[in-house]
Design a protein around this nucleic acid. Sequence first.
DNA 1: ATAATGACTTTCA
DNA 2: TTGAAAGCCATTA
Length: 117
Amino acid sequence: MPGKHKKDAPPLEPTDPHLAILRAVARVPAGCVASYQAVAEAAGLPGRARLVGSVLGRCPLSDDVPWHRIIGADGRIRDRRGGGATEQRRRLGLEGVEVDERGRIDLSVHAWRLRGR
DNA sequence: ATAATGACTTTCA
DNA sequence: TTGAAAGCCATTA
């Protein structure tokens, strides 16, 4: 039994922000895109758009999570170091999302909306 | 504890 | 529309 007077900090919690973000990204359906901000809100972390990017950047570009469906709030693919934007564009194309030459995506068509009515 | 960094957003020119 | 500057926030050094 924990009779410690000093506080103990578990390594992971059910409300772990990282986990919540990954979960939110995972529920974005194919053929749709969501902004970092939208994902943050969906994860219950309003205003942490930057954190979403950090988490996705730290994770490997695996198929475990549809990272390619996350784009900037302006509906364009965000550029980042190392590249990967090309891969993202390719994947989106395979899913039926039309991406402009400049990386622009029609949000009025593919924007993912939070379900919950 | 302070400073720098990053797959962000918004505002202004 | 494009680009620069500031705002914002957790992680990392």
